[in-house]
């Protein structure tokens, strides 16, 4: 029904823009990861696998990557533990208050990510709100200093940031479950427990996968929360990349790490996509 000129007009400009400002930069990242830096701090454009070899050889790099994945995994689990029951409550039990409560989950997203991380810093610090509160009610006499500048602070903050993001797809999946399936399960004699685990939960798995992927991938690549709240033991892989692009000035090595992250993310996305397909009944 559409003419060729119309199709060209809607296709060509976005294709060109995306090719120049997305495809080309990602390709450039890939190229950089095979280049190197000379002693006079110039980029040497000859191809080498040295950067990738270094990633495997130097413990700090892959250990930090593993730690980042472990932090991201904890964030994902906690976000699901907080987000799933909340989504379930809103979708099935909240009745008329559903829309209002839904808005209440969304509103924190409108407060800047950076500002929320900063707010946790003011809560967790050694003379922060929590510590002074604990001393005020005489629960402790000294400030607890393990709260801030630790992986704990990073996990807590990132969980706070990504819980609404995991909530959203789970809620959408739960809302799409036809309610008569639940009634049918009840009428056929299933207990509430069985109805949940054999009808509702399997149908919500695509939402869980989408939310989990989102939380894991975005917290894996985060570098601001660790810088702000992580301290030396909370350093994540992106912090290493930032320093390689800044003071350490080794763009090629930084590009190699970034490209590994990119590959990991793409692998996770296609994994979760194929799992979602497997579990979607529509």
């Amino acid at each position: 029904m559409f003419s060729r000129a119309y199709r060209a007009a809607i296709t060509v400009p976005p294709l060109v823009w995306v090719a120049v400002f997305l495809l080309l930069p990602y390709a450039l990242l890939f190229c950089y990861s095979f280049w190197s830096v000379s002693s006079s701090q110039e980029i040497v454009h000859s191809w080498t696998l040295d950067n990738y070899r270094q990633l495997l050889r130097v413990n700090v790099y892959w250990q930090t990557l593993l730690r980042s994945m472990w932090i991201a995994a904890r964030v994902t689990i906690f976000s699901l533990l907080l987000g799933y029951p909340l989504a379930y409550y809103l979708s099935f039990c909240a009745g008329k208050r559903k829309d209002l409560l839904y808005q209440l989950v969304i509103i924190p997203l409108w407060v800047s990510y950076l500002v929320r991380a900063y707010a946790w810093k003011t809560i967790l610090g050694s003379d922060g709100v929590l510590n002074t509160l604990l001393q005020y009610v005489h629960l402790t006499s000294h400030p607890l200093d393990f709260l801030l500048y630790s992986p704990f602070a990073v996990v807590l903050t990132l969980t706070h940031i990504y819980t609404p993001f995991t909530f959203l797809p789970i809620y959408a999946a739960l809302e799409h479950i036809p309610r008569n399936l639940v009634e049918a399960s009840h009428d056929l004699g299933a207990s509430p427990f069985q109805t949940f685990w054999r009808v509702i939960f399997p149908l919500s798995i695509p939402g869980v996968l989408a939310g989990a992927t989102f939380a894991f991938v975005l917290s894996l690549g985060d570098f601001l929360a660790p810088l702000l709240l992580g301290g030396p033991s909370g350093i994540m892989i992106s912090n290493i990349v930032v320093s390689l692009f800044g003071a350490a000035y080794n763009w090629p090595l930084g590009a190699a790490i970034s490209f590994c992250m990119l590959a990991l993310v793409l692998a996770l996305l296609s994994l979760s996509e194929s799992l979602e397909k497997k579990w979607s009944f529509r």
Partner: peptide
Amino acid sequence: TVPTSRWLPWHAIVVFAFLYLPIVTL
């Protein structure tokens, strides 16, 4: 017919407190 638990509203309250604590503090 919907499976439910009396803990669900409490859980919701805890999550909302967690989400709003930093904002209120701010």
